[in-house]
Nucleic acid binder design. Sequence first.
DNA 1: GCAATAGTGTCTATTAGACAATATGGG
DNA 2: CCCATATTGTCTAATAGACACTATTGC
Lengths: 232, 232
Amino acid sequence: MTENPSPRLFPIVNADVALFTLDDALRLRVLLIQRANRPDPGGWALPGGLLKPDRDDSLEAAARRVLADKTRVELPYLEQVATFSGPHRDPRGWSVSTLFYALLPADQVPAVAGSKTESIAWVDPEAPGRALGFDHGLMLPRALATLRAKVRDGALPLHLLPSHFTLTELQKASEAILGRPLDKAAFRRQLKSSGDLAAVPDLFVRGAQRPAQVYERAAGYRFGDGHVRNDT
Amino acid sequence: MTENPSPRLFPIVNADVALFTLDDALRLRVLLIQRANRPDPGGWALPGGLLKPDRDDSLEAAARRVLADKTRVELPYLEQVATFSGPHRDPRGWSVSTLFYALLPADQVPAVAGSKTESIAWVDPEAPGRALGFDHGLMLPRALATLRAKVRDGALPLHLLPSHFTLTELQKASEAILGRPLDKAAFRRQLKSSGDLAAVPDLFVRGAQRPAQVYERAAGYRFGDGHVRNDT
DNA sequence: GCAATAGTGTCTATTAGACAATATGGG
DNA sequence: CCCATATTGTCTAATAGACACTATTGC
């Protein structure tokens, strides 16, 4: 059915990433790039790139490599959303693209910069304000929905914050992701009982008010997929 | 771009399916096949096959085609689980495999048959009793977990049943999937309020007891991913 | 009536949300 | 003291689970 002038025996395989972060006003933002190369030069899209079997050990590794081209910061939290496929979603031919979402701590946003040939933009994921190439207009809502589901399930948006934070900051981050206000008392109850947080003894943020306890991720913080991470 | 890519430069792309159903004793079962072809002939695995860009319009279509090779019945409910990838999971080289799970109504199980060269087996997904080839031993628990999460979220195992059924049958099917008993009253409360079911007027199953109301899927039954299906 | 399963009512423990009250700093 | 924000307490509505009760058939 697909009469492609340069037919491929194998589909194109690539990895795309919806990289989320918080801006100065603690609003949820997602990274778009303005493509420099074919196809669709000048068009806006989620960052992504072809899988390189000789360099990547997995699609997730490919996604991390693509992100590394944009930033030098430590690898963010990254999770698979879904895989998109079809003969027409990429003008080069039959393609398969696995979408990931990733979370970048807000204080590392400045490390993400455009290049001489590629501009970047941090946009509202619910209103990107640009037409996105390929089927990225479908991808972005899926990534956002997956992220929100994880936040509701208690997997935490800790990864959008620096390593140390207050409960109010964490609540603001959660509200930014979910797009709605949360109740302070209920939010704190749930976190306290989750065991995912640890208070840092004798560390407080001071201001013109009662000092706020500083927290960090607990040693055995459990990820959304159930696995435990013990490092940073 | 390379004109004639070898399989080493482009990853192998295929689709695998965990096809679930209920056996006579209403136990959850998953389909395994004994492979006839390379690689791993004679080994047990989930049904799957290479994507054929000239014949498939999507990975999901490829999964349905693979299933159609095993059975002639109507296409079952099918949903993506995740995509597995890496240089070593398939002996032929770097490969990408998108896993789906599917639900086959119990009354259509007889339509699934082995071929002269391929045996089939319906096994307990929690204890397949055989070593599975590739990384299918990792895939199966993921598929089961995804299925169970959907059942808990209220998306229903209706697709394991014939088009008409009683609430007790539906409860037994749910219990088989989740692997634990459910409370009758709570189960019925939740279904009644979900709006996913419609009682069939004046249709009852009779036996040596009070007749059971027959139900069918409601017109606007909502799938797990939120989309509405109005056909069968 | 009796057995067997369908279907309902009710109590309780848990939880999310609303909202009020208290705590503790800076000025 | 006053302000601002942190932190905690409490009330309530909604819900899931346990469990018992009633309903309706075949025999």
